[in-house]
């Protein structure tokens, strides 16, 4: 496995010195701040409306978690739908199209070690970007009362989902040597996974099956602070499927 970490270290360095990752991170910060402050503005409007209406006597005002943090984390994960295929594209598809992979592939290193190395490097970058998403909730925490455990559960959901998305993106990057095509395949697959729950409205099928496979519904539960074994298992299985597919695709190409 030490060889896999040699690959991981090189790939991490390659990602950190590339301007693309800083452009992507800046866009991520910009868009996530937009989503966060839109949610906060929406909360303020709800707050004013609630206290101006008579309904407050019978019901309870939804909290910051429901109106700000939960939709914010869901929108952050939606941004990962576009970010993770770009990282995977940079790590695998570009390496294959540029010809650097050809030298790597003839070294005494197995496709599995290459996949693990790239997965570790990409996951570290995903975790760093996910850490950036915490800055606005932490800012809110300084002057509002938030449950840290729920906040943490939401962030763990973002992290797990980001890593799972990266794993799936890596498989799409192994399908095609064209960086553009691999990113397009990755984004298409992830959008389908993200909105799988919407299929229940269209096909009117067994709701429970789709419920179990829906990224959105697992995320929704976790951002509400409900970390269940089934949700964690779901994301781990997604990671496993992505890695297995990438491994098989790279092995087939040999």
């Amino acid at each position: 496995m030490s060889v896999a970490f040699v690959v991981a270290r090189r790939d991490l360095w390659a990602l950190l010195v590339t301007p693309m990752i800083y452009v992507v991170s800046s866009l991520f910060l910009l868009l996530s701040s937009y989503f966060f402050f839109m949610n906060l503005a929406s909360f303020n409007r709800e707050y004013v409306r609630f206290y101006e209406s008579a309904a407050r006597l019978d019901s309870q005002m939804p909290g910051l978690h429901n109106l700000v943090i939960e939709p914010y984390f869901l929108s952050v994960v939606f941004l990962f739908v576009f970010i993770t295929p770009l990282i995977a594209m940079r790590l695998l598809a570009e390496e294959r199209s540029s010809g650097t992979y050809q030298l790597l592939a003839i070294l005494p290193i197995s496709p599995l070690q290459i996949v693990i190395g790239k997965f570790v490097a990409g996951s570290i970058v995903v975790a760093l970007i996910a850490a950036l998403s915490l800055c606005y909730p932490l800012l809110l925490l300084t002057f509002a009362k938030l449950e840290v455990s729920v906040l943490l559960a939401g962030w763990v959901a973002v992290l797990l989902c980001g890593v799972a998305f990266f794993s799936i993106s890596l498989a799409s990057a192994a399908i095609s040597e064209s960086p553009f095509l691999s990113a397009l395949i990755g984004i298409t697959v992830l959008i389908s996974l993200f909105f799988l729950h919407a299929a229940t409205d269209i096909i009117k099928t067994d709701y429970l099956v789709v419920d179990k496979l829906s990224v959105y519904l697992h995320l929704e539960k976790m951002t509400q602070g409900l970390i269940s074994l089934s949700s964690i298992t779901f994301f781990i299985v997604l990671v496993g499927i992505g890695l297995l597919l990438t491994w098989q695709l790279l092995s087939r190409n040999r």
């Binding site: 090189r10 360095w13 390659a14 590339t18 010809g99 650097t100 050809q102 030298l103 003839i106």
Partner: peptide
């Protein structure tokens, strides 16, 4: 040891 006809090196190293 193999030197392929077409290859590329990691530009950042």
């Amino acid at each position: 040891g193999y030197l392929p006809e077409s290859f590329n090196l990691y530009p950042e190293l």
